[in-house]
Simulated scan of single mutants.
Amino acid sequence: MNNEYIPFSSEILEVIKHTDIEYTFRLAYKGEVRPGQFFEVSLPKYGEAPISVSGIGEECVDLTIRRVGKVTNEIFEHYVGDKLRLRGPYGNGFDIEQYKGKELVVVAGGTGLSPVRGVVDYFASHPDEVESMTLIAGFKTVKDILFLEDLARWRQSIEIILTVDCGEADAVCQVGLVTEHLPKLKNRNIQNAAAIVVGPPPMMRFTCLGLLELGYLESNIWVSQERKMCCGIGKCGHCKINDVYVCVDGPVFNYTRAKHLID
Score class of each variant (00 low, 15 high):
155 R>S: 14
172 V>N: 12
144 D>A: 00
215 G>D: 00
226 E>H: 11
145 I>V: 03
224 S>R: 13
142 V>E: 07
153 R>P: 15
211 L>N: 07
169 A>P: 10
211 L>T: 10
150 D>T: 08
205 R>P: 12
234 G>A: 07
185 L>A: 03
133 M>R: 04
180 E>T: 10
137 A>R: 09
234 G>S: 02
202 P>Y: 01
203 M>I: 01
205 R>D: 12
235 K>H: 11
228 K>L: 13
225 Q>K: 15
135 L>G: 12
161 I>P: 12
117 R>V: 06
118 G>Y: 00
162 L>S: 03
213 E>M: 04
178 V>S: 04
234 G>F: 00
192 N>I: 01
150 D>L: 11
212 L>V: 12
180 E>A: 13
181 H>A: 13
146 L>K: 08
141 T>H: 07
220 N>M: 08
128 D>G: 05
152 A>H: 13
204 M>D: 01
158 I>A: 01
233 I>Y: 03
159 E>T: 14
231 C>N: 00
133 M>N: 07
186 K>W: 05
223 V>S: 09
155 R>C: 04
184 K>S: 15
182 L>K: 07
168 E>P: 11
138 G>I: 07
201 P>K: 06
213 E>F: 03
153 R>I: 08
232 G>E: 01
178 V>N: 11
182 L>V: 12
141 T>G: 02
144 D>K: 02
126 H>L: 04
161 I>M: 08
234 G>W: 00
187 N>I: 10
207 T>N: 07
223 V>R: 12
222 W>D: 15
186 K>M: 05
171 A>F: 13
228 K>D: 09
136 I>S: 06
189 N>V: 13
213 E>D: 14
238 H>V: 10
172 V>C: 11
200 P>G: 02
146 L>T: 11
196 I>A: 01
213 E>H: 14
188 R>F: 13
224 S>K: 11
167 G>T: 08
226 E>S: 02
143 K>A: 15
226 E>N: 03
135 L>M: 07
125 S>N: 15
202 P>W: 01
160 I>T: 03
209 L>H: 14
216 Y>C: 03
210 G>K: 11
166 C>E: 14
206 F>C: 02
237 G>T: 04
140 K>M: 10
165 D>M: 11
131 E>W: 02
133 M>D: 03
202 P>C: 05
177 L>E: 06
235 K>L: 15
138 G>T: 03
196 I>F: 00
154 W>T: 13
166 C>Q: 15
177 L>V: 05
200 P>Q: 06
238 H>K: 14
193 A>S: 15
228 K>E: 08
201 P>M: 08
208 C>H: 02
123 F>C: 10
183 P>W: 00
235 K>R: 13
174 Q>N: 13
229 M>L: 05
215 G>N: 09
183 P>Q: 02
183 P>F: 00
159 E>H: 05
196 I>H: 05
175 V>E: 03
221 I>E: 00
131 E>H: 08
126 H>D: 01
200 P>S: 12
225 Q>T: 14
131 E>R: 14
195 A>V: 04
178 V>M: 06
218 E>S: 11
178 V>W: 01
191 Q>W: 04
203 M>V: 10
234 G>Q: 01
210 G>Q: 10
122 Y>C: 02
177 L>A: 09
136 I>P: 07
152 A>W: 10
230 C>Y: 04
120 V>W: 02
150 D>K: 02
204 M>T: 09
155 R>T: 09
180 E>I: 06
